[in-house]
Design a protein around this nucleic acid. Sequence first.
DNA 1: ACCGTGACGAGAT
DNA 2: CATCTCGCCACGG
Length: 112
Amino acid sequence: MSNEKPNYFDLVYQVVREIPKGRVTSYGTIAHYLGLKSGARMVGYAMNAAHSMSDVPAQRVVNRNGLLTGKNHFESPTRMQELLKADGVNVENDRVVDFEKVFWDPEKELGL
DNA sequence: ACCGTGACGAGAT
DNA sequence: CATCTCGCCACGG
């Protein structure tokens, strides 16, 4: 009975889908929001599977440095930057410009 | 069933 | 300040 395994992948997708346009967040932030203090790797791994998801803007998820570490996993290494640019987020040298300004914290923005 | 790897992060040295 | 190591959960071989 109650063999409910926490499907972190699905949880990650739901949070990422809530990221407003023009904002970005980090893997660790999402992980921490889900209760995974150090499960940031899981979030990135989930993003890899997100390729089949059209409602999961993985380009809005970067590492804690604001670096587009996952750009290499997109259709094209420049795809992530282009998508962010289309969202109104400027990227320079594989890094989000004004990262702190466009940073989106679920615990804070969602009013927890 | 065991080991290694992975779109990360924080702490320790 | 830079570099290294461990932790986290899931999946592939």
